[in-house]
C-alpha cells in the first residue's frame, strides 16, 4: 500500500518536471521564432541576389536591418539548462551547446558580423548582395554544423 506522503512526493516531482518543460516552451518558441525571422529576411535578400525578384533598395535595406536587429537579441535567456534535444522534445538544440556555451555565443556573434556586412552593402544593388549572402550562409552553417541535430 503506497503511503499518502510518498504519493504526494511523486506528484510533486512530476509537477516540477512538467513545470520545467513548460518553462522551456516559451524559450523554444522564442528561439525558433528568431530563426524564422532570419529566414524570411534572408529570403528577401537571397531572392534579389539570385534575380528571382526585382531588386528594391529600400526593401533590401529593411531586410538587412532586421537581420542585424535579430542578431542583437541576447541569447542566454533563450537557452536555459535542460532545454536540449536530450532533455525535451521539439528542439534540435544539441547538448554540446551547454558544454561549449562560449563557442556557441561566439558563433552567434559571427552571425551579427555577417549581418552587419550585409547591412553596409544592401543598398548598393543586387550584385553586392551575393557575396554578403555567402557570409551569412557561412555563419548559419558554422553553428548548425556543431550545435543542431539532424531532422528526425
Amino acid at each position: 500500500m503506497i503511503r499518502m506522503s510518498t504519493g504526494l512526493a511523486v506528484l510533486a516531482i512530476c509537477a516540477a518536471g512538467a513545470a520545467a518543460a513548460q518553462d522551456a516552451t516559451a524559450q523554444l518558441k522564442a528561439r525558433q521564432g528568431q530563426f524564422r525571422i532570419l529566414a524570411i529576411n534572408l529570403g528577401i535578400l537571397g531572392d534579389m541576389a539570385q534575380g528571382k525578384t526585382e531588386y528594391d533598395a529600400e526593401a533590401a535595406q529593411a531586410a538587412a536591418d532586421s537581420l542585424v536587429g535579430v542578431s542583437m537579441v541576447n541569447q542566454a535567456p533563450l537557452w536555459p539548462e535542460g532545454s536540449s534535444e536530450m532533455d525535451i522534445d521539439n528542439t534540435r538544440a544539441k547538448a554540446e551547446i551547454w558544454d561549449n556555451f562560449d563557442d556557441f555565443a561566439s558563433k552567434w556573434g559571427a552571425l551579427g558580423e555577417a549581418a552587419a556586412s550585409m547591412q553596409t552593402v544592401a543598398g548598393n544593388g543586387a550584385e553586392a548582395l551575393g557575396p554578403a549572402m555567402g557570409g551569412l550562409g557561412g555563419a548559419c552553417k558554422a553553428c548548425h554544423d556543431t550545435y543542431r541535430a539532424p531532422q528526425s
Binding site: L38, A39, I40, L42, G43, G46, Q50, M133, G134, G137, C140, K141, A142, H144, D145, R148, A149, P150
Partner: peptide, 28 residues
C-alpha cells in the same frame, strides 16, 4: 534544379533554412 544548385553553393534551402551536420562540409 536551380534551387538544388543554389543550395549546393550556399547551404540555403528554398525556405532559407540553412544546412547543418555533415551537409555543411559537403556544401562547402
Amino acid at each position: 534544379a536551380d534551387e538544388i544548385a543554389y543550395y549546393l553553393s550556399s547551404g540555403f534551402t528554398p525556405e532559407y533554412d540553412s544546412a547543418g551536420g555533415h551537409m555543411v562540409e559537403v556544401v562547402e
